[in-house]
């Protein structure tokens, strides 16, 4: 739900302000790759109606955001292209290699799924780099990144709960480790987010 909220916040910003200033297209494209490689089992592995609907929402909304940033006349003009310089392959290639080395089963779908877990952990980096370069971070963008970080942190709590409460729950070290790293990457952002919230000031990251 926090993940869904983050997407709603981002779409709200882009749609109402007709601006994507401070939003990293690189991160959005990495997320698109994360969802495509993770949800390849959309039609073959039915978990629940909720699960299927959420997968479709995450996939379509991410491509919708990318369309807005690349294709929409007004939104496209507000994109900070010169500041959003992070290279995709810096993250994609190491994650691919890691997925080929560390996985639970050597099948195409499983390796791609593992790749998506690793890539998700670091997909926020271009956004955080761009954020540091952006002087005026608007509230919606700040809250968007907060929700995006919070959902993985909440997963950590959920994993602990499931580990103790569910009978047939198996340890999933790959997901846990990646989730911990993903949350740790946000630690610095969370610190400044709460600091500005407490002081009732605009969010600002130190250079």
């Amino acid at each position: 739900m926090t993940h869904l909220a983050s997407i709603c916040l981002l779409l709200l910003k882009i749609h109402t302000m007709k601006s994507c200033a401070g939003v990293s297209l690189k991160t959005q494209e990495l997320y698109a790759l994360v969802f495509v490689t993770r949800y390849l089992d959309l039609f073959s592995n039915f978990v629940s109606m909720y699960n299927t609907i959420m997968k479709i929402i995450f996939l379509s909304s991410t491509f919708g955001i990318i369309w807005y940033m690349r294709g929409h006349k007004l939104v496209r003009q507000s994109y900070d292209k010169e500041q959003d310089t992070f290279r995709h392959y810096f993250l994609v290639i190491p994650c691919m290699v890691l997925a080929l080395v560390i996985h639970s089963k050597f099948t195409l779908l499983e390796v791609l799924w593992t790749f998506s877990i690793y890539l998700e952990a670091v997909a926020i980096l271009p956004q955080l780099v761009l954020l540091q370069r952006t002087r005026n971070i608007d509230n919606l963008t700040g809250n968007y990144i907060f929700c995006l970080g919070a959902y993985r942190a909440l997963y950590l709590l959920n994993w602990i709960y499931r580990y103790f409460m569910e009978k047939n729950y198996h340890a999933q070290w790959i997901t846990w480790m990646a989730g911990m790293i993903q949350t740790a990457i946000y630690a610095d952002f969370f610190y400044y987010y709460f600091k500005s919230w407490k002081k009732n000031e605009r969010l600002k990251l130190p250079a």
């Binding site: 089992d41 978990v47 699960n51 799924w113 198996h170």
Partner: peptide
């Protein structure tokens, strides 16, 4: 067989 807790998350 479906492994509980492996691919049932988003």
């Amino acid at each position: 067989a479906q492994r509980t807790g492996s691919h049932d998350e988003l």
